[in-house]
């Protein structure tokens, strides 16, 4: 049955409209969870507010479990779902550059849109910087194209790499996440502060 678009159940234009609706839910949940505040987001790196950790991993676990169950019921064909390819070097270095951007700017792209949307001027400047960063990447592309495409590993899943069943990997993630939630709750009592 799913994904509906791949199986021709909905048209491309319907898909775009649904993208808009999904975006509304995405933006609403991010803002309502406090992701429009850079001080809340950065809190995870100092332990005073671990909302990022909690929302991020609860969402990932819910998503993993949901897709796992849908595929067990044969309601979705996971082979038709987009899995991002792994280019080892550019994924690691790109992630590190993003990490530096995160702790300096206090946002990631999605949260900066939320912040700007409710009037955070720092969020608007972050977006401006992001546009500039993308432009720089595009203009200098010949310089790093080789690195960008190096060490292509195909589109492996963690379960394939570890040689485990998807369910076992998800179970492992649940256990790891529970541990992190516990640490997060502990950190928030150790480094208390007022709500922003």
């Amino acid at each position: 049955m799913g994904p509906l678009i791949s199986n021709g159940i909905i048209s491309q234009n319907t898909n775009f409209f649904i993208a808009f609706l999904i975006g509304i839910a995405f933006g609403f949940i991010l803002e309502a969870s406090g992701f429009s505040s850079s001080r809340k987001l950065a809190g995870v790196f100092y332990g005073y507010d671990t909302v990022v950790l909690k929302v991020f991993f609860t969402a990932a676990l819910t998503g993993m479990l949901g897709l796992l169950f849908l595929s067990l019921f044969n309601w979705i064909d996971l082979d038709l779902v987009y899995i991002n390819p792994t280019y080892l070097y550019s994924t690691i270095v790109g992630g590190m550059i993003m990490g530096a951007g995160f702790i300096m700017g206090g946002y990631c792209p999605g949260t900066s849109f939320c912040a700007a949307s409710i009037g955070k001027i720092d969020g608007m400047f972050f977006i401006g910087g992001m546009f500039l960063g993308i432009f720089i990447f595009a203009e200098g592309y010949p310089l790093w194209e080789g690195f960008y495409k190096a060490k292509f590993m195909g589109i492996p899943t963690l379960s394939q790499v570890l040689g485990l069943k998807d369910g076992i990997v998800v179970l492992g993630m649940i256990i790891v996440a529970m541990g992190m939630f516990w640490v997060g709750e502990w950190a928030e009592t150790k480094f208390p502060r007022e709500e922003y």
Partner: peptide, 22 residues
């Protein structure tokens, strides 16, 4: 710092083929 962070995130998201969400 927001602008500098934005530049880095924009650049890194292209190199890494997607950001925190994607």
């Amino acid at each position: 710092f927001a602008v500098m962070g934005g530049i880095l995130f924009g650049f890194g998201s292209q190199l890494g083929r997607g950001c925190t969400s994607g």
